[in-house]
């Protein structure tokens, strides 16, 4: 194509634009956008006798989501869903509690050392979750000091490991998701107006008041990104709970995985996935409501 004298700032959508954007858009639409919609449709289908999907409209899976099974109502599933919420919430809260002091410490360093700290927080974010969880499996093993100390204190029977159990799950989850919380929060903490902090201290505000009235409002953008980046994947997590949690600590992620493997109940798995998807959208829109017009401080 010859150069036009008009030299438009942004060219009109021509063949070249379609050729550039087309393959990517087509790929993502065919393999991701449409299947996500199909997943929602499948939530209303049912399971056939041999694990196949029967495409007739039914609300059975949604009923099962609120506890109605083959044998009447039972609270098992609701417990799993509530536990997912609870584990994700506690993990997020633990991450918040650790991330604030961590990011404040980072922000108070000299700029050259700050970069070093940032890299130290980013590196675990990249390492493989299976390997890291496996590391905890080694550390919490029966022959090592943590388990022996717990046994000495009478918390666990002697000779047993610190897994499977809630303690191991929270340890694994918190250390896995801490970078997800710390990195967005750091972006806000770094920009915190130190003068207002000083002023609050000069006026003898107590630490709690300083946090509530000065620090929290100023760090809300980073905090809300961190909360979403921790809470949503924590609910969907199945590696950590599978390795460190045992059957008692099953989460919605484990349940979805089971429906698509051993149980071969795709429609029910689809219904669970739909619930998780709705939840993701809900938390994203909640954030958009709270901080309109603000761009995410991206992790990348």
């Amino acid at each position: 194509m010859d150069s036009s004298p008009a030299r438009p700032k942004k060219p009109k959508i021509g063949l070249a634009t379609w050729l550039a954007a087309g393959p990517g858009l087509l790929w993502l639409t065919l393999l991701l956008a449409i299947p996500c919609l199909a997943l929602i449709a499948m939530a209303f289908a049912s399971r056939g006798q041999y694990g196949e999907v029967v495409w007739s409209f039914s609300l059975d899976n949604l009923k099962r989501l609120i506890g109605y099974g083959l044998f009447g109502w039972s609270p098992d599933l609701i417990f799993i869903l509530l536990r997912s919420l609870l584990v994700a919430a506690i993990t997020t809260l633990l991450c918040v509690f650790i991330a604030y002091p961590l990011t404040f410490h980072m922000a108070s360093r000299k700029p050259s050392i700050r970069v070093f700290w940032l890299i130290l927080v980013i590196v675990p974010f990249w390492t493989n979750v299976v390997v890291r969880t496996y590391g905890w499996l080694l550390i919490l093993g029966p022959q090592l000091p943590p388990a022996q100390l717990a046994a000495y204190l009478g918390l666990i029977p002697p000779g047993s490991a610190l897994y499977p159990g809630s303690f191991a799950v929270y340890l694994g989850m918190t250390t896995t998701f801490l970078p997800f919380m710390a990195l967005p929060l750091y972006a806000s903490v770094e920009r915190l107006d130190q003068d207002i902090l000083e002023a609050a201290r000069d006026l003898y505000a107590n630490p709690f008041l300083i946090f509530w009235r000065v620090i929290l409002p100023q760090t809300t953008p980073g905090l809300s990104v961190g909360v979403i980046m921790t809470f949503v994947p924590a609910m969907a997590m199945f590696v950590v709970t599978d390795i460190l949690g045992g059957a008692k600590n099953m989460l919605i992620g484990n349940l979805i995985q089971q429906q698509f493997s051993q149980a071969r109940d795709w429609p029910f798995g689809a219904a669970l996935s739909m619930g998780l998807m709705l939840f993701t959208l809900l938390s994203l829109s909640f954030r958009r409501l709270k901080t309109p017009g603000q761009k995410d401080p991206s992790l990348l």
Partner: peptide
Amino acid sequence: PDIIMAVALVL
């Protein structure tokens, strides 16, 4: 979440 993407791809 990854797991939903995985399920969508399986589908």
